[in-house]
Amino acid sequence: MTFIGTATTLLRIGGFTLLTDPNFLHRGQRAYLGKGLWSRRRTDPALRIAQLPALDAVVLSHLHGDHFDRVARRELDRELPIVTTPAAERKLRRWGFRAAEGLPTWSSRELHRDGTTVRLTSMPGKHGPGALDRLLPT
């Protein structure tokens, strides 16, 4: 596991290489969260997209700018599988990411290679407790 920053992590599991929530903005840059809300990146990412190894898939928890930013949108391979929410799949496909796949909650997607399987399961999530969850856009 390599922590890149924010929610972005490079995972190597059983011969598979997965990237979670690609955020490659630099320190001081702003990420759009929706409904007029922004967050400012506090640190630089540990790696750039060009430095990543070959990826088998991206696991995207949800489509906010602090989890999938404009750098990821511009630089990630449009053929790379992205496992995400159904709403994020629709938007990613409009942006040209043809292998985006939205999983309804509790659904799974399996990746197979050389007799090894990795299962990705969609789970419900919240931004935070109480008012914070209601304040932030979905």
Results as ranks from 00 to 15, higher is better:
T2H: 08
F3L: 09
F3T: 04
G5A: 08
T6C: 06
A7W: 09
A7T: 14
T8H: 11
L10Y: 02
L11H: 15
R12I: 01
I13Y: 10
G14S: 12
G14F: 01
G15K: 04
G15E: 03
F16G: 06
T17I: 03
L18I: 04
L18D: 08
L18C: 05
L18K: 09
L18M: 11
L18H: 05
D21A: 07
P22W: 11
L25H: 03
G28T: 01
Q29K: 09
Q29A: 06
R30D: 07
A31Q: 06
L33R: 11
G34I: 07
G36R: 08
G36P: 14
L37Q: 14
W38Y: 15
R41N: 13
D44Y: 06
D44V: 02
P45C: 12
A46I: 01
L47F: 11
L47I: 01
R48A: 14
R48P: 03
I49G: 15
I49R: 07
I49M: 15
A50Q: 10
Q51F: 14
L52M: 08
L52A: 15
P53A: 07
A54P: 12
A54W: 02
L55Y: 02
D56H: 12
V58I: 10
V58W: 10
V58N: 03
V59Q: 12
L63W: 02
H64C: 11
G65W: 03
G65D: 09
H67M: 04
H67P: 00
F68M: 01
D69W: 09
R70Q: 15
V71G: 08
V71L: 10
A72S: 09
R73K: 06
R73M: 13
R73S: 11
R74S: 14
R74I: 12
E75I: 01
E75A: 15
L76P: 01
L76I: 06
L76S: 06
L76T: 03
D77I: 05
R78T: 06
L80F: 07
P81M: 08
P81H: 05
P81N: 07
V83C: 00
P86D: 00
A87F: 09
A87K: 06
A88E: 02
R93H: 13
R94V: 11
R94E: 15
G96E: 13
F97S: 04
F97C: 02
R98S: 10
A99K: 06
E101P: 00
G102W: 12
P104K: 04
P104L: 05
T105E: 12
S107W: 11
S107I: 02
R109C: 06
R109Y: 15
R109F: 12
R109T: 03
L111P: 01
H112I: 10
D114M: 05
G115H: 04
T116F: 09
R119Y: 05
R119P: 02
L120K: 05
S122V: 02
S122H: 10
S122P: 00
M123K: 10
P124F: 06
P124M: 11
P124S: 05
P124C: 13
G125I: 02
K126Y: 11
G128F: 15
G128W: 09
P129T: 11
G130S: 11
G130D: 15
G130V: 01
A131T: 00
A131H: 07
L132T: 02
L132W: 10
D133G: 10
D133T: 05
R134K: 07
L135C: 00
L135H: 03
P137R: 06
P137M: 08
